[in-house]
Amino acid sequence: MPGQDRMQKLFMRAYEQHSDAIFRHCYFRISDRERAQELMQDTFTKTWDYLIKGNDVENLRAFLYQTARNLVIDEYRRRKPEASLEKLQEEKGFDPASNDHKHIGESFDLEVLKEVLDVLEEEYREVVTLRYIDGLKPRQIAKLLDQSPNLVSVRIHRGIAKVRQHLEKKEQDPNEQTA
């Protein structure tokens, strides 16, 4: 029936428009390209399921990010069911799959970034990713996370300061293991 087709077409356009961004977000959070793709895919199918039940969505982009974010959190829990999110960060973080390199043609810079992001606590990594990779404004992030904008801004600043610190340390002694 025509109404169906149209709705599907429209949602497909949303996929065209946002799949890269959502994928990118997931990728920087979990450092596993294949899995990030799967999470991105799940984000869209879940959103579709939500919509057809008759729910209202004020802002599609924000909703997609929200869903993706929840899926990422689930992913962490799935990988280390007992550990808290903070504890996860004490370990090195997830090694990027070696076949990532042939997909992305990564430069040394990106490896450094990923390593550095891994170093951050999850709460910092999340906001830094949302702010600087996804390009969301602090106010949007605050809305997404349901927190105060001030808190978000502070966390972004602290997060990026830590990143900078880490980069400087690496420059001074590139062979030193990251914490």
């Binding site: 994928f23 990118r24 997909h103 970034l113 600087y132 980069l167």
Partner: peptide, 15 residues
């Protein structure tokens, strides 16, 4: 350097 890295990272896309 950080800026440069972040800029590059935003170019990561699906094939």
């Amino acid at each position: 350097q950080l800026k440069k890295i972040l800029k590059k990272s935003r170019q990561i896309n699906l094939t």
